[in-house]
Computed example of a mutant assay.
Amino acid sequence: MTLARRILPASAGLLVGGLVLAGCSAGTPATDDSARTVTVATNLGEVEVPVAPERVVALDNTSFETLRDWGVTPVALPKGLLPDEGFEDWLADEDILDIGMHRDPNLELVSEAEPDLIIGGYRFQDYQDDLESIAQTIDVAGSDVAADGWVESLKDQTAALGAIFEREDEAAALVEEFETVEAEAAAATGGESVFLAVVSAGQIDNGAQRIGRLLEPLDLVDVFAGEEGDVHGDSGLAPETVAQANPDWVIVLDRDAAAGEGEVTPAEQVFAEQEAFAGTTFTTEDQIVYLDPFFYTREGLQAYQQAYEQITEAFSA
Score class of each variant (00 low, 15 high):
36 R>F: 06
227 E>D: 11
165 F>P: 09
262 G>D: 08
95 D>P: 09
103 R>W: 04
239 P>R: 08
11 S>P: 03
261 E>V: 14
34 S>C: 01
217 P>C: 09
295 F>P: 09
278 A>F: 02
220 L>F: 05
136 Q>C: 08
202 G>T: 06
166 E>M: 02
240 E>F: 05
145 V>G: 01
103 R>N: 12
29 P>T: 11
78 P>V: 10
75 V>Q: 12
88 E>K: 11
185 A>D: 00
177 E>L: 00
286 D>S: 14
8 L>G: 07
61 N>E: 07
316 S>F: 05
297 T>F: 00
263 E>I: 02
92 A>D: 10
94 E>H: 11
33 D>E: 15
292 D>H: 14
8 L>Y: 08
226 G>Y: 06
18 G>D: 10
63 S>E: 08
41 A>W: 14
71 G>Q: 15
4 A>L: 15
206 N>P: 01
282 F>G: 03
15 L>C: 09
208 A>P: 05
97 L>E: 12
141 A>R: 04
213 R>H: 11
8 L>A: 12
89 D>K: 15
300 G>Q: 10
265 T>G: 01
264 V>H: 07
29 P>L: 12
169 D>Y: 00
264 V>S: 07
156 D>N: 09
13 G>L: 12
299 E>P: 04
59 L>K: 08
127 Y>L: 07
11 S>T: 13
235 S>T: 09
156 D>S: 13
54 E>R: 12
77 L>E: 11
203 Q>D: 13
112 E>L: 14
187 A>C: 02
48 E>T: 12
307 A>N: 05
255 R>Y: 00
197 A>H: 01
7 I>C: 05
239 P>Y: 06
245 A>C: 06
213 R>G: 02
187 A>L: 03
105 P>V: 08
179 E>A: 00
209 Q>C: 02
134 I>K: 09
210 R>D: 15
187 A>D: 07
161 L>I: 13
307 A>Y: 01
294 F>G: 08
199 V>E: 08
66 T>W: 06
291 L>R: 03
50 P>F: 07
65 E>K: 13
121 G>M: 01
135 A>D: 06
219 D>S: 02
251 I>N: 00
134 I>T: 02
119 I>M: 04
58 A>T: 11
140 V>Q: 05
309 E>V: 14
6 R>N: 10
256 D>G: 01
280 T>S: 13
87 F>S: 06
284 T>W: 06
150 W>K: 08
61 N>I: 09
97 L>D: 14
40 V>K: 00
259 A>W: 00
296 Y>Q: 07
265 T>I: 13
24 C>S: 12
61 N>R: 09
222 D>C: 03
131 L>V: 06
121 G>F: 01
299 E>A: 14
288 I>W: 09
255 R>T: 13
75 V>R: 11
229 G>S: 11
57 V>S: 05
44 L>M: 10
57 V>N: 02
8 L>W: 14
139 D>M: 00
76 A>T: 04
273 E>M: 08
